[in-house]
Simulated scan of single mutants.
Amino acid sequence: MTSTINTETRQGRDVGVVQSVDRAITILEILAREGEAGVTSVADELGVHKSTAFRLIGTLEARGVVEQTDDRGKYQLGVGLIRMAGTTAARIDLVQASRPISKQLAADTGETVNIAVLVDDSALYLDQIAGAATLQPHNWVGRRIPLHATSNGKVLAAALDPDEVDELLPDLPPYTERTITRRRTLHRELADVRRNGHAVAVDELEEGMTALSAPVRDAHGEVAAALSVTGSSFRLDAESRAGVATLLVAAADEVSTALGWVERGS
């Protein structure tokens, strides 16, 4: 009997949560349609009491997706929502701009090509093109990987101030025997990345896997993403890496140009 009551209680809570989410989305749709609206009109359209509408709007306001207008009784979409939409649009633009270039790079190298962006303390993979030499490539899209143990991560970290890197990475956990775990070594490696224009990670995240990465810049010249070539350490040995790096850096610059970046002096 108790179990039945608990189940019914949980189901009731779940229904309430779903209903609240649906109402919150409806509020956003109302504000998008009307431009601005007051609590009374929102409550009327939702078919709820004013106190319920006020509580929902207050929650959205606290998260920055809704804000009050100069007329204190009305609300409009907040900059938080616009910022999220802008970030999503920027990532879509990045994938669309890089896709044909990534395909050509994968064809030229025979290896897997990925593009990643910085999210919190990790690199997030947005897109992947498998090369002909890769039999069963890892599907990295949507995965987050550590900054200190990957070539993409090093490129993204190299664009930050050293203090920012230390704040983002209070710990440097090992993944293999070759993972960088000393802070001084990491900063020396990031300095090399800035000087050389690309990063290399050999057996640092996984044994037998090597990756090279180069920065992709936006129209302002800021590092917006990292483009990488990943393959087996056997194929990407020291001799072959030099040729791959040349192709990679050229491809990353091509993506940057597609995003509006113009190199100084050109």
Rank of each mutant, 00 (worst) to 15 (best):
V48G: 13
A258E: 00
P215S: 08
T87M: 12
A107Y: 04
D161F: 08
L248A: 07
T112S: 08
A224V: 10
P146F: 09
E8L: 15
E111W: 01
A90C: 07
E207A: 11
A32N: 09
A97R: 09
V141C: 08
L227I: 01
Y125S: 07
R23W: 07
V21S: 13
S228K: 03
N114P: 11
I145C: 15
L81G: 13
T7E: 13
P170A: 00
L205D: 04
H220M: 09
N139W: 13
V193S: 07
L105V: 07
G243F: 06
G78F: 04
A62F: 11
S213H: 03
P215C: 00
R10D: 10
I145K: 14
R91L: 03
F234P: 01
S41E: 10
A97G: 07
V113W: 01
A158C: 12
I129V: 00
E239V: 07
A252G: 06
T59A: 13
E263F: 10
L236V: 05
A225Y: 09
V165E: 10
G110F: 04
R182V: 12
E204A: 12
S20T: 14
V255C: 00
V117K: 01
D14L: 15
R13I: 14
A157E: 05
T7R: 14
A225H: 05
L60N: 00
F54W: 12
R72C: 04
S51F: 02
R184L: 02
V18H: 12
A201Y: 02
R183G: 02
G231N: 01
T150D: 05
I57D: 03
T112N: 08
R182I: 10
R184N: 05
M84E: 13
E67Y: 02
A252F: 06
T9G: 07
T4P: 13
V202N: 05
T185I: 12
V48H: 05
N6T: 13
L147F: 00
L156E: 07
L135V: 09
T246M: 07
A62H: 14
P162A: 13
N139E: 14
G110I: 03
P100N: 10
G131V: 06
D121W: 02
A133N: 09
E206K: 02
K154V: 06
V113I: 11
V255P: 03
V21C: 12
L156G: 15
G38D: 08
G12D: 13
A123V: 11
E167A: 11
R99L: 05
L124H: 09
E67L: 12
E254M: 04
E254Y: 01
F54S: 15
Q104H: 03
D14G: 11
L247S: 07
M1W: 11
E177C: 08
V262R: 12
G38E: 03
L168A: 06
M209C: 09
G35I: 03
I25C: 04
T109L: 01
R144E: 11
G221L: 12
T185L: 11
V155H: 09
Q136T: 15
T257Q: 00
S98L: 02
D70V: 14
R99N: 05
V216Y: 05
F54P: 04
S233K: 03
G12T: 15
L259Y: 08
V79F: 11
P173A: 02
R99V: 03
F54E: 12
D161A: 10
A85R: 14
